[in-house]
């Protein structure tokens, strides 16, 4: 990144730098857009975490049909909102549990499932096998669709969104 010493005046350098800054901002905006559209949905698990996750390893009981394991961090600003969405979604679906864990406390799960950011949501089937996962902001409908894909049940409108609930 050393400054080019050209016979041109320094205005050429300034123009070049301005163009580089503009390019940098454009590339980061594109990267951000690609990242958010890619991760804001549940995707089939690639890191399957090896064996099934037991209730003992999780530290709390698995849901009878599915379990949403949310890995959060104190530094994560959208984690509380995602937790609220998942908590109310799980509450409206029988046999679906929501467990929120802090990455600081559960580095074992972070390593095992290759978690890179918070929140990461691992969707486990009835046996504790990793069915799908997502990270980033999440809305109720996305969560419900992913859960129904695992439980095999047809979507039932067991609950309407509660008043004041924000859907992202």
């Amino acid at each position: 990144m050393a400054t080019l010493r050209t016979p041109f005046s320094s205005t050429v350098d300034l123009m070049t730098r301005a163009a580089l800054v503009a390019a940098l901002l454009a590339v980061s905006a594109l990267a951000w857009w690609a990242l958010t559209t890619r991760t804001s949905r549940f995707r089939p698990a690639r890191h399957d975490g090896g064996d099934l996750l037991t209730a003992q390893q999780l530290g709390s009981p698995l849901g009878a049909r599915a379990t949403l394991v949310q890995l959060s961090a104190a530094t994560c600003s959208i984690c509380p909102r995602v937790a609220a969405v998942l908590r109310s979604t799980a509450a409206g679906l029988p046999g679906v549990a929501h467990v929120e864990l802090r990455v600081e406390d559960r580095m074992d799960l972070v390593e095992r499932y290759g978690v890179l950011r918070t929140p990461t949501v691992l969707l486990l089937d009835a046996d504790g096998g990793l069915a799908s996962r997502m990270s980033g902001p999440l809305d109720r409908e996305t969560a419900r669709a992913a859960i129904h894909a695992v439980t095999g049940a047809a979507p039932t409108d067991s609950t309407a969104p509660t008043a004041g609930e924000r859907l992202d």
Binding site: A29, W32, T36, A73, T75, C76, S77, V103, E104, M107, V110, E111, V115, L116, R117, T118
Partner: peptide, 17 residues
């Protein structure tokens, strides 16, 4: 500033790992 996306916050988990 533009999107409200906090890159520094995202690096927290990587740092812990």
């Amino acid at each position: 500033a533009a999107f409200g996306f906090c890159l520094g916050c995202e690096m927290y988990v990587l740092g812990r790992r």
